Simulated assay, not measured.
Amino acid sequence: MSIEVKNITKFYKDQKALNNVSFSIKKGEIVGFLGPNGAGKSTMMKIITGFITASEGEVLVSNYNVKTDKLAAQKHIGYLPEHNPLYLEMYVKEYLLFNASIYKIPKVEVEKIIKKVGLTPEAHKKIKQLSKGYRQRVGLAAALLHNPNVLILDEPTTGLDPNQLIDIRALIKEIGKNKTVLFSTHIMQEVDAICDRVILINKGEIVADENLIELKKNQAQVIEVEFDYKIEKQFIETIPHLKCAENIYDTSWLLTFNTSKDMRPAVFDFAHDNGLKTLQLNTKNKNLESLFQELIPN
Rank of each mutant, 00 (worst) to 15 (best):
S2L: 03
F11T: 13
K13I: 12
K16Q: 05
K16N: 07
N20D: 15
S22P: 01
F33I: 06
A39G: 05
G40E: 01
S42A: 14
M44P: 02
M45P: 04
I48D: 02
T49E: 03
F51E: 05
E56C: 15
E58F: 07
V61P: 01
N63C: 01
Y64V: 01
L71W: 05
Q74V: 01
H76R: 12
I77G: 02
G78C: 00
G78D: 05
G78W: 00
Y79D: 00
L80H: 11
P81R: 14
P81Q: 06
H83Y: 11
N84A: 09
L86A: 09
Y87V: 12
Y87P: 06
Y91R: 13
K93S: 02
K93Y: 03
F98I: 05
N99T: 12
A100F: 04
S101D: 15
S101H: 08
I102R: 05
K104W: 00
P106L: 12
K107E: 14
E111Q: 09
K116H: 08
P121A: 00
P121G: 00
A123V: 06
Q129D: 12
L145E: 09
H146C: 09
N147P: 01
N147F: 06
P148R: 13
P148E: 14
V150D: 04
L153R: 00
D154C: 04
D154E: 00
P156M: 06
T157W: 05
Q164E: 00
L165K: 06
I168D: 05
I172F: 02
G176L: 05
F183G: 03
I187W: 14
I187H: 08
E190L: 10
E190T: 05
V191M: 08
D192C: 05
A193S: 12
E205C: 04
E205P: 03
E205T: 15
I206T: 04
L215S: 03
K216L: 04
K217I: 12
N218I: 11
I223G: 01
I223Q: 13
E224K: 12
E224I: 15
Y229K: 14
K230H: 07
K233R: 08
I236S: 07
I236M: 14
E237W: 13
T238H: 14
I239C: 13
L242E: 12
K243S: 09
A245W: 10
E246H: 13
E246M: 15
I248S: 11
F257K: 13
K261I: 14
F270Q: 10
H272Q: 10
N274D: 07
G275K: 02
L279S: 01
L279M: 10
N285H: 11
K286L: 11
L288V: 13
L288A: 15
P297L: 12
